[in-house]
Design a protein around this nucleic acid. Structure first.
Lengths: 241, 241, 241, 241
DNA sequence: AATGAATGAGTGTTCATTCAT
DNA sequence: TATGAATGAACACTCATTCAT
């Protein structure tokens, strides 16, 4: 009786399991993202990860296990990387905007992997699909807290916050899903800035708009820049704080 | 030198090609939607369509052809079914709302197929992917015309209409993509009504809001109903005209 | 209980059977020669012959029937076309040389078909293989008669005439089988002339050599010419008689 | 950009590749020889070789690869086995006769495979066909050297040595190709002896004939014997030297 | 723990043959 | 008689998975 979330490993040394799985999953995410789940073979993953095919079966029960942990890896990235980006941001409106901005930059970095999540979640065994969806829901709750704080603070008109969050998520994911169309018209900064204009600003109260305007004055940078390489952006961001 | 959009058939009788392809594609869309492209076998499609495996290759060159025409079938449904639903609707705000409502009802009817489009477009041969995207773009342009009319008529504040359309599309597709989560809280009518409250209303001018309110009074029905079976909905619609 | 040499036809009108079979066999010989038996499909044959696939099965029982009659057609060509070329040629040595020359010109015309016979005889049902070999043997006997006459007339030293005939056949067939190599060094006339120098002349008695020399003086033409197109060669031949 | 002569293997261990390929090719040559290329299935080859079908694809890229190496195996056998049989044979006339004898014994041993080469070379991908023909040409050159030495030594009248070699090759191959007819009248020894009488002796000078007669006196054995099994023949030969 | 050779069930695709019209 | 749509058995080839070393 296997638990759906459990992935068995023949190897017992926990540190080694951690390390090898990471090594294999990085290869898998890359290949799945580029070529899809079904067209990626175990031996391609092995080659990309620099191990033998046999070794993979020491750390994963079957191919579905690899997909499962690959998707978790991606979804957990969202969940883990957004909160630190909100640290020190106090104002609810600013937190909401920063959350969207953070989410979008992560999507941008994991663009192919985000598409993968849409393509391949249904390829998972059904019981595990639910687990992956929970991961996604947890990320949504991060946004939901931001929205709620805006409304609670009187910065945003009361709205169906649940639906709004889904719209925000759709907005962030669209950067990956519709990148083929959007990239012709936007860079990432412009995309987020315009998105805020469309999905945040119209919902704000007068008080909220004032806050947004203030924030814009301070962080004008990311709305104008051409999309820079990931590395320099990360560097700039840390120096800015 | 094959054109990417062309699918060859051994059979020459155009009527028969039309009919058989339809028969096979209906089976394929169903199976692809339920089980995905790669896990659906040609012989499953044949069985579902009530023909032999060999026959399929009289009407399609290979499995990719079937996927291509399946996706086209789905995307063309959007493109073809929205315009008739807008006939007779004059007011720009009302047209926009009706377009969203129409789009969402089609997505609802083709829920699995819509998910299929997200899952499997990347499984297409690259040259054909572009053609499918064009189909999608054409549907977007239907929405874009509605948005533009609203702005031109002074019913909506000037916004980035291109991005807004993508938000609308994301909203409609989300009904299929996130149905697992949304169905717990919304029925289709409520979903659309709330979506309009979130994505249309806040962007309207005073004049636009008046129009929206008027419309709501007249068509209050669809915002309250439980999701009805497709047949009765269609019946109601025609009687309403 | 089918007789091996019998090919059944659904159609009863003998004249029609004759005509249709000829039409189909010409197409089959061409395609089998170019592409081989197994890689040629019935529908290719049908297309080449300008009929439907179904029609082929009105005149042949199965694909093996087509191959069988195709090979017979080719082998009977040898058997039928050599004798008229010997008409009026009286001298045994001259008859032998003319037979070789005739055989080689036919091989040259049916080059691909000759290769086909080597490739595909073994693809025939075993009982029919024997029939085809009999056809070949009958052609051999034409040569054998020539050799025998030479020996009987004291023009050729007594030799194993049976083996010699096989050598002659091998020589003629080699023009097709090894054409890829021979064509770089010989045209057909030179090939035959040199072959006679190698396989006939050394076996002749003094008397025989005198005859050969005389013949050469008269028919010097074909030993020097560049290989002419089939049409002009045929024309010249008839005008020479 | 694949080189036509290269056959890729998934397995890297050279010794293993050598061994497995040999094992599979032996099975393939047997089955191709008996049943032809197209009617032999991969799984028949696998069964005959005692391996799984999958394994075959670890050592060959596709079925064409197997045919290619099968034909090479056969043609290289000629090329490799003739020279050792000439070792220690000094006299040009004797070398020529020994070469013919050696060639014919190899053909006799590989009778079916020799027929295979004629049947199936055209089934090869065109670029590889040329490589196989080169193998054949190399064997021809072995004979050509023998002929040339005879002429240079004044043992044979000057003739078109290129054509003569082709005639010798045709003679040797005929033992396989026309075995169905020849076996009724000849055993291998008699076939070669008579062949020499027909294709070598008449071309010799007086000096050459003396040498041939001398040789015949010494090695009279092989012209009379019934066809002995390959093994004892080889044994006798070495003891005779 | 790690390798990679070996397995064989499963897939897309072809094509000789049939048969309703 | 002639058509060509329909069939389905058969094949080449793939790849997740196992296991001896």
């Amino acid at each position: 009786m296997k638990l759906p979330g459990h992935v068995a490993s023949v190897v017992t040394d926990a540190r080694l399991v951690e390390e090898r799985r990471g090594q294999i999953l990085r290869a898998a995410v890359k290949l799945f993202s580029d070529n899809g789940y079904y067209t990626t073979t175990i031996s391609q993953i092995a080659r990309e990860a620099g191990v033998s095919t046999g070794l993979i079966y020491q750390y994963f029960g079957d191919k579905d296990d690899i997909l499962f942990l690959s998707l978790k890896l991606v979804l957990e990235t969202y969940e883990k990387e957004i909160p630190p980006r909100l640290e020190g941001v106090k104002h609810p409106v600013e937190r909401l905007c920063m959350a969207l901005w953070a989410y979008c930059t992560i999507v941008d970095r994991l663009r192919e992997a985000t598409v993968l999540a849409y393509r391949s979640t249904k390829s998972l065994r059904a019981d595990r699909r639910a687990l992956v969806k929970e991961d996604e829901s947890r990320t949504n709750r991060l946004l939901q807290a931001c929205v709620r704080a805006c409304i609670a603070g009187g910065y945003m008109h009361p709205v169906n916050e649940y639906l709004l969050v889904y719209q925000y998520v759709a907005f962030c994911h669209a950067w990956a899903l519709k990148h083929w169309a959007l990239r012709a018209r936007f860079n990432l900064g412009k995309y987020v800035a315009e998105g805020i204009g469309l999905l945040v600003e119209p919902l704000l109260t007068a008080k909220g708009r004032t806050a947004l305007a203030a924030m814009r004055r301070r962080t004008a940078d990311f709305t104008r820049e051409a999309k820079p390489p990931a590395r320099s952006r990360r560097a700039r961001r840390s120096s800015a704080h």
